[in-house]
Amino acid sequence: MKKVCKYAAAAAIIAFLVYHSIYFENLEDIKEQRRRGTFNAAEYARDFWDNQLFSVLDKAVNVKELIELFNTNMNEAIRRYGKAPGVSRTYAYLIQGNGKILTIAEDFLEVSIREPQTNPDIKISSGFYIPGNAVRDASGLIDVSEFSDTMKFNEISGEINKIVVKEVIRPFLEKKPKVGKTIRFFGASQVAQDATEENLFGQLISGATEAKEFQLFRVVPIRLELE
């Protein structure tokens, strides 16, 4: 009887030790974690910028045409040119055009693209950081479903925006642009579906607190050159 008890106790101890010294994990989960661990958003953004983005710039719509369409038929503008990675009331647009600089502020340029070029139509970001997903989404090249977690998808946007600041905005500002000069640009923009419900783009905002405040189309530059 004593022997039986001894064997039972020994078996229980061995079982306990074996149970706690071996840990099973699903191989697919491990592979997934490894894949995530190797992702580098900066490298992805670099490749996107150098090898992919410029191939779609020829699809950029003329900003003057787009603004006219926003002001007359927002739904048609969305249908023809808008891109969104999922379900949204905000769409991204790839644009191009030229215009006259009217204002140079700390983090933006106000530019007129429509004759007689006395009032601003667009606001081009020129600050030290760019928020949002305008370039990533307007390109239509990056599919969120490719990523196991959406944080990677978001990190790419952050890295693209850093490239914009470093390689587009800073070199442009180093050329010391002046008010009255003409610029040529490619860019991306995000516009809410109801953006023109109260005020049209390029028009004075009704009831604005500051004098001569216009409803402006905001642009993140992809290429920015003085003409």
């Binding site: 995530r36 990675p85 999922g86 949002g132 997903n133 196991s148 977690d149 944080m151």
Partner: peptide, 24 residues
């Protein structure tokens, strides 16, 4: 979200990051 794009049929997710960019 679950951190996999192979097991669920689809994932309908709040775009939290972009929402908080705007909130920021």
């Amino acid at each position: 979200e679950i951190n996999s794009n192979e097991v669920a049929t689809t994932q309908i997710l709040s775009d939290n990051y972009t929402g908080c960019v705007e909130l920021g």
